[in-house]
Amino acid sequence: MSVIPADSASLPAAQGAPATKVRGYWGSVWNRLRYDYVTLFCLGLIIVIILLAVFAPWLSPMDPEKSSMANRLRPIGYKKYLLGTDEQGRDMVSRLLWGGRVSLMMGILPVVFATLVGGMFGVVAGYYGGKVNMVIMRTMDIFFAFPSVLLAVAIAGSLGGGIGNQMLTLTVVLIPPICRVAETATSQVRALDFVDAARASGASTISILFSHVLINVLSPVLVYSSTLVSISIILASGLSFLGLGVSPPTADWGLMLSTLRQSIYVQPIVTALPGIAILITSIAFNLVSDGLRQAMDVKA
């Protein structure tokens, strides 16, 4: 083996070589996302929907809760009503804009809370394993035993209506699946040698969790959570539809769908509008999370 020349450790020529510009992790994610036009389009769509909801008070042409008995269930394009009116003669454009505020909030906030709480439990369960894992994951299994819609209805039913309770309900329902994903990802990372190498250098558990584990668990959890946004919107709409969410006359896509359904034979297209809004929003969120998953996948 001595015939093979040793790679010189001093490298005299190295000093002259130019430093290579290497993208950071998020830079490389963006670079992959840049050419994914479907994801970019959906991302733009989501931004537009959020902006429409945020600026609803200024954008909506009429008061969303002002009814007019004379103009009930008007078709699309009737006089000043761009998208018609609902069963109480309220302007659909205004109600969709205002309803977006509630529905998007119901889609995003519970997912954010559930990601924080469920992710934390999952990382702790996955890193420590053993008894800690058993206690946390078996508790989650109890929630898993119920279908998510049924669980949401049960919790919302016992808590009562209102936006706050609805958000709490959705958060509780979304915690177990996120926790499961975080636990699986963490226990996989935990078994890798670089965690042992970090322990061998004398790092504390907290430092290892923050510097080595979280960064590797983040992308699967973020991607999974983003798929839950659309599920959360649909669940929230379902709860409102059943009367367990926001109460009338507040505008909410699910509630609008619920109250308009009796009029489906009178004004089918107007009735479908809140459903179309939910559909577009959830498809956009799903496609974005799909694109994110591909972009965040670090491979050779």
Partner: peptide, 25 residues
């Protein structure tokens, strides 16, 4: 470690992987 792949954090530039131990100390 034996497995050169799994003994480096895939999300950290190698310079940070090397500097981690001294920083901890």
């Amino acid at each position: 470690f034996q497995d050169s792949y799994s003994s480096l954090n895939p999300r950290l530039p190698i310079e940070q992987s090397i500097a981690y131990g001294p920083k901890v100390q």
